[in-house]
Design a protein around this nucleic acid. Structure first.
Length: 421
RNA sequence: GGUGGAGUCGCCUAGUGGCCGAGGGCGCACGCCUCGAAAGCGUGUGAGGUGAAAGCCUCCGUGGGUUCAAAUCCCACCUCCACCGCCA
């Protein structure tokens, strides 16, 4: 939810944000009107309630005729209070609805426009030459019997897979490496629940425009998370944090479930785009004034991880129209896929400012001891299957073997090369 | 899944219809005392809305209901604890 104080003091800033995202600026004025109506309703209900309480308090001290008179007036007021409270509830609901409809205000530096308007800000590593034919990740995986999508489909359907043999070992190695690096950087390792209540899903902003992406377990009113950002953000919901020693940082491991509605026919081969995968996600709670620096820190750790895996990649400053509803700014790291001759998203980091925290009730104490809304940020450290796909492609050798990056070797029994099975 | 018990301002706790719209203790902060500290004494100590401020209003697990008036009574739900059943 956006800051209503900002909305009142600078509505044009919010309208501009809406236009930059390609969203309707009229929603801003709807929210302003709803907010005004709500404030009027609250004031009216408050004063009626106050009056009624004053009279009620006199009842026990009164007797006889005076008491009857007080009761008569109190009863009449009780009806008025009921009506005023009904109006207040309706106004509250209208504000909630209008409030939810507006995504986070984009940062001023964000490139305007849609997907094609994102800006590449940095390219890291060099793309080497590949002997023909260049195998895509499934072709390499087949040589190693590392990924079984056929049986994945048999058992669970399209976009499911089994990791087998060295494929399974690669997942464990990547997760171990990611978690070890995260812990070294001072993040707290977390194993997070993948099934969450509606409040957690709603609070993180995943039931808005992208609700169709989310799996729901109807029988129990729970949702399968699409990222551990959800449980990690909700971890501190309704808490007042002590951030005096700096941001609270976590690295959460969990499975991720995505319906991939609307991506029919896209990236259908292999495990590039699947309904379920495991991921190590970074999450940070900090003061709003530190959020931008924290964002760069998360991006830095993502870059370090890809560099450790010896993967060439680009950093992309995501355009406004492609930002999630909670993000004010987002950077993707896109790694090179030789079979596709292009960079594809491997990690992504978003600065949500106070947008998520406001909805989740996450605050901290400022230097005056006053509770203020905190800022939240998230970033991928390692989305396992897509990273495996990239590793297999980038590090494939003409003979079908796969080079193992030095950093990963300790987690793969010291192997420097993976030989075809 | 069954039975029983419990959810109060950081923690513990008082409170069964109206000077409790929340008392006490612990903890914490500040002050006095001290060379310094402890002890002792004193003062203060939840969040939110609105307002220039004083103030007013909301919140006693959540949501409904009864009443002029609810932490307190009624209903539903949630969570936790104990025991039983089942189970990785």
């Amino acid at each position: 939810m956006i800051d209503l104080k900002l909305l009142r003091s600078d509505p044009e800033r919010v309208r501009l944000s809406q236009r930059t995202r390609g969203e309707d600026p009229a929603l801003v004025d709807e929210l302003l009107a709803a907010d005004e109506r709500r404030r009027t309703a609250v004031a009216a209900a408050d004063s009626l309630r106050g009056e009624q309480k004053t009279i009620s308090k006199q009842v026990p001290r009164a007797s006889g005729e005076e008491r009857e008179e007080l009761l008569r007036r109190a009863k009449a007021l009780a009806d008025d209070v009921r009506a005023a409270e009904a109006e207040q509830a309706a106004a509250d609901e209208a504000v909630r609805r209008a409030h939810r409809a507006i995504p986070n205000v984009v940062a001023e530096e964000v490139p305007p426009g849609g997907e094609d308007d994102s800006v590449t800000v940095e390219t890291v590593g060099t793309i080497r030459d590949y002997a023909e034919p260049v195998r895509d990740h499934m072709a390499v995986a087949d040589l190693h019997k590392a990924i079984d999508t056929e049986r994945g489909a048999k058992v669970s359907g399209a976009r499911f897979y089994f990791l087998t043999g060295v494929g399974a070992q690669l997942e464990l190695a990547l997760v171990n490496l990611a978690m070890a690096r995260a812990a070294d950087a001072g993040l707290t390792p977390v194993i997070a629940p993948a099934l969450v209540k509606p409040e957690a899903m709603e609070g993180t902003g995943f039931l808005g425009a992208h609700a169709a992406e989310v799996y729901k377990v109807d029988a129990d009113d729970l949702y399968l998370v699409g990222t551990s950002e959800v449980p990690l953000a909700a971890y501190h919901s309704d808490e007042i944090l002590d951030l005096s020693a700096g941001p609270k940082r976590y690295a959460g491991f969990s499975p991720c479930f995505r319906r991939e509605a609307g991506s029919y026919g896209k990236d259908t081969r292999g495990v590039f785009r699947v309904h379920w995968f495991d991921k190590v996600e970074m999450f940070s709670f900090c003061r709003p004034e530190d959020a931008e620096a924290e964002h760069q820190r998360l991006l830095g750790w993502e870059k370090d991880f890809l560099t450790a895996l010896e993967l060439p990649f680009q950093v992309v400053d995501i355009a406004a129209g492609d930002l999630g509803s909670s993000a004010s700014r987002k950077f993707d790291c896109e790694a090179w896929f030789p079979s596709q001759q292009r960079y594809r998203e491997l990690t992504s980091t978003s600065n949500c400012g106070t947008f998520q925290a406001r909805r989740l009730g996450i605050r901290y104490r400022d230097e005056n001891g006053k509770a203020q809304v905190a800022a939240t940020l998230n970033g991928t450290l390692c989305a396992v299957t897509r990273t495996i796909a990239c590793l297999l492609e980038v590090h494939q050798q003409p003979d079908g073997s796969v080079h193992v990056p030095a950093e990963l070797r300790p987690w793969l029994g010291g192997r420097e090369v993976l030989e075809p099975a």
